[in-house]
């Protein structure tokens, strides 16, 4: 594989389950070496199915996926030895100690005893579990289990780490710590990260590039900044004291003269909305323009678009509302809570 080649290359990938459900419906993308690449979408969008195909646990119905230079359908063993996989299930064995879990994982990747000992010390230190490594996982908190799980995914120095919903079911503080670990492991190990999430904030914070996936299709792909810029820009909401002799139409015309403005309109609540590429620059400019015409601004609010807005823009639905209610998912969440309690 050449240095400049993408480490993951997916072309027209389709996965149809028995019974006809098309979980992945013609997806194409590529991931560069060293990238943190995110799949963002609601539950049931096809994120986990895509990961399962990429790690060679599901055979694609059509299309092709090449991971680390090997076709996942034709050379699954070569792919498996080069990748690490951390499922959303926090799949650590709680009847074993942290060390035993890591040791076993090393053995399953055919590492020798010395390599395992060395890597174990490294990955344990990275996820801050060195002190607790000898304890049974049964005594770990949910966050510690997740960190151990991530450490296990790294023991064999994979080229790519696949993280399926790395912070699902974790509290905010733990989630932020996991983000720090993901950034750290990329910096220290140079590993490429392919992750899925249904948390906008997570994709925004962590990913170099994000693919928004809905109903098995990629509806948008780019860096978080690009995706947000593509929907128009920042929103400035103004409450303007009605000036003498200024009709509504005149005011829209006036707002459009503000440098960098893409769009201006009056909202239903009577306030004025201005869409600009750079809200920070447009805010003083609009005050200046309005002031020069003797208009007083009572309030000004600026809102940066979020990936939420991007998702809404491309799918017409809000991410939170489009979450499916599948029983298995709920059962799993229940199990996870039970184990954490």
């Amino acid at each position: 594989m050449l240095a400049g080649d993408p480490i993951i290359q997916v072309t027209d990938l389709v996965k149809e389950y028995r019974g006809g459900l098309r979980a992945v419906d013609g997806v194409s993308f590529s991931v560069q070496r060293g990238e943190i690449f995110g799949f963002l979408g609601p539950n049931g969008a096809g994120k986990t199915t895509t990961i399962m195909v990429l790690i060679s646990l599901l055979r694609p119905t059509a299309g092709r996926a090449v991971v680390c230079g090997h076709d996942v359908a034709r050379e699954p063993d070569r792919v498996r030895s080069r990748i690490g996989y951390v499922s959303q299930d926090i799949a650590v064995d709680d009847a074993l100690t942290g060390e035993q879990n890591l040791f076993l994982q090393g053995r399953l990747y055919h590492l020798d005893r010395e390599t395992i000992a060395r890597r174990m010390a490294e990955v344990l230190a990275m996820v801050d579990l060195t002190d607790r490594a000898g304890d049974l996982v049964l005594t770990y908190s949910g966050g510690m289990r997740k960190r151990l799980d991530i450490a296990e995914g790294l023991i064999h120095r994979p080229d790519i780490l696949f993280l399926d919903e790395p912070t699902l079911g974790l509290d905010i503080q733990t989630r932020r710590r996991i983000w720090d670990y993901i950034r750290l492991l990329r910096a220290r190990e140079g590993v490429t990260v392919f992750m899925t999430t249904h948390y906008m904030e997570e994709a925004d914070q962590l990913c170099d590039r994000v693919a928004i996936i809905d109903h098995g299709r990629i509806v948008a792909l780019g860096s978080p900044a690009e995706l947000k810029a593509a929907i128009g820009g920042d929103l400035l909401t103004l409450d303007i004291a009605a000036g003498d002799g200024h009709a509504a139409g005149d005011l829209v015309g006036l707002l459009r003269t503000v440098p960098g403005t893409k769009q201006a309109f009056r909202a239903d609540d009577g306030r004025w909305v201005l869409v600009a590429g750079h809200g920070e620059e447009a805010a003083p400019a609009v005050l200046e323009v309005l002031g020069a015409h003797g208009l007083r601004v009572r309030s000004l609010a600026m809102k940066k678009p979020t990936l939420d807005d991007v998702f809404l823009h491309y799918t017409g639905r809000e991410l939170r509302r489009s979450e499916g209610s599948d029983d298995f998912g709920r059962m799993r969440m229940g199990l996870r809570r039970a184990r954490m309690g």
Binding site: S56, R80, Y85, S87, A91
Partner: peptide, 14 residues
Amino acid sequence: RRLGYLNKLLAAPI
């Protein structure tokens, strides 16, 4: 299978 450990085993090159 239920706890997801099976997938972890299967994702390994065993």
